[in-house]
Write a protein that binds this DNA or RNA. Structure first.
Lengths: 204, 204, 204, 204
DNA sequence: AATGAATGAGACTTCATTCAT
DNA sequence: CATGAATGAAGTCTCATTCAT
């Protein structure tokens, strides 16, 4: 033990290619990226890339999985304890942190979305996106439901609708963070959450 | 009057090509679409396309402008009268109507976003998107501000943050409508608006 | 009489197209020129060009004939009287005048030469060039022969060789005039003629 | 030693493509030649050509440089010793040798001249031609000047004019050799040189 | 395992030519 | 007669992928 196995070396190089590819795809898009460019960026030969991946699409999907995994990991580290409101804050802040960390390479995400719409990979990407969205929507809905049970959230609230809207809203924040680099996403998130919790209109 | 002029015929054919191109781009994406395919789809010769457009990118941008124009038009037909809350409902419903009307070809929108990130057209597209977002954000913020002045909206609300979040949320609804074809966007919008207006947490 | 006939108008327009084409071919070469460009330059519709010419090559050949005709005309106006030496001077000066008049558009001549080498028109052009060269060579040879008969030219001179070399030399002066716009072709011609008549080496 | 390196193989293939291209350009001209044809003629794939050259123009320029290099090489092998007259003979014979060796592919030279006039490569070609002409003109002028200093050449001779005319004349011999395949260039050159040295007109 | 030279499918684009008006 | 919209053949160039070393 301690000595790096062949397996290790293999996956290490594979990882390096994925990292390099992520940068290239973010910079040029899927269509604009070339396998030669990825290979050069990863400092390996063009042929070597094909030792680890079957095709350009294959690389793209690997990058996609890496990104999705990072997001899931980031969110998973959050301890879900506390009140519903507390959990909403914690979750949204974790997401915002991810946004801030990712926004520079957000074009990569857009590439994935576009590919989910039109490329031959659409099925696999679309399935992943759907699953991700459903998962987070459900996660938020659970929090809200629990909040309703505990009397923290008003009973009249359409939990499903709110969860759906919220998940989309947070996702869209990533887009806006990328578009408007000076946007203070954290502040927007906080300001919005506060307003939504208390309500826009004055109570009687 | 009534006789079709040369000008008419020219712009009519141009329009036909744009329509055909929109369908092809939506189906295959920018990179996947071929000019030959667009020409065939518009039922004209390959060379004819180049009588009306300088390049494939040019066609793409024309389609983009068509879509943006349609959206702006749809929203512009809304009479802005009534209370702030009323206006939010009206605006959001117009937007939701556009979503329902466009969701099938939403992949086209995703193509535009992706192109805004990486293609050589990025500057033009990005500028248009930024401007669009800003415009709608400001529009919503205006409504909220007026609401505050009239006492309809609570004074403590961070209007800018809410407007930013709302615009993103509505945009993201389009994405979800496309992803989940059975999603009732109208209902989500209404449920969310109601909850946000009154607030998630019970008042004292 | 005096009223322009249909025939006149036709050939006038044809002439205009040839003139315009000459400029365009000189500017862009045969391959680089477009029929559309020629039409625009002649201020007629693209289709009109095809009323007067069967093809782009046809236009090119018409321009060629125009240029050749001009040269022949210029040289024909020279009265061939006088001694052999006198005639050489007169002829060469006429040629030099043509060079000075044409050098700006010399690239057109180069286009013809190139076309004589490789284009489908090669046979027609080559034949014309050959005939032209032969004609002038013979013309010069005649002068020299007569000079020999009259004792003006040394009997030992290889008249055919000298005529061949001279014709080529004058032709090449055109090329150099075009390449080096500040070259004083007239002076070169005179200086060379003088030297050649008397001889480069000192006489015993 | 004796083992071919990668470098060798690369430049060997590059050379092969240039050779093939020279033949194709000579046969069809620049515009008429196709990269596919060149590739086929070089017995490599179409894409391979682009591994060695950036564009069709690039190939053309490489062929040009090859030809120019061959000429310079041929002339450089001449030992410049002897009297001025002797040197003129030697130089002109070397040039004539090159003509005889090249005349079959002279259309290639015409292509270069035409390209120097109108193609996008005009600047590079024109510069090379100008430099070549100047170089040879100066070379001849030097010989003549030295001849004058040594009393071999008459003092009254306009050396610059004669040098300019001679260089053009030799160049034009190449053209005539190509046009009239049965022309005995060597004989023409000798006959002309003899006549010019002694002078056309009888001495007193 | 690693490489990069070789390849050819395929796409954009140009433009000579036709023909209906 | 004049026109210019329409066309498709043809050509350059890119690049994912293969495979011999």
């Amino acid at each position: 033990m301690g000595s790096s196995t062949t397996q290790d070396r293999k996956s290490a190089k594979r990882e390096a290619i994925i990292q390099a590819a992520a940068a290239v795809f973010a910079e040029r898009g899927f269509a604009g990226a070339t396998v030669a460019g990825i290979a050069a960026s990863a400092d390996v030969g063009k042929g070597t890339v094909y030792e680890y991946f079957d095709s350009k699409e294959d690389i793209f999907l690997a990058v996609f999985e890496l990104l999705m995994g990072q997001l899931a990991e980031d969110l998973a580290t959050q301890h879900p304890g506390g009140s519903a409101v507390e959990q909403l804050r914690v979750f949204s802040e974790a997401f915002v942190a991810w946004i801030n960390h990712t926004s520079e390479a957000y074009s990569l995400t857009l590439e994935f979305w576009a590919a989910a719409g039109t490329s031959p990979m659409r099925d696999r990407l679309m399935a992943a996106f759907r699953q991700g969205y459903l998962q987070y929507r459900e996660f938020i809905a659970d929090i809200l439901h629990q909040g309703q049970e505990h009397g923290e959230i008003r009973p009249g609230v359409d939990v499903e609708a709110v969860a759906t809207a919220l998940v989309g809203m947070w996702d869209a924040l990533g887009l806006q963070a990328w578009m408007f680099t000076d946007l203070d996403v954290e502040s927007v998130n906080r300001g919005f959450l506060d307003a939504m919790l208390t309500g826009l209109i004055p109570q009687a």
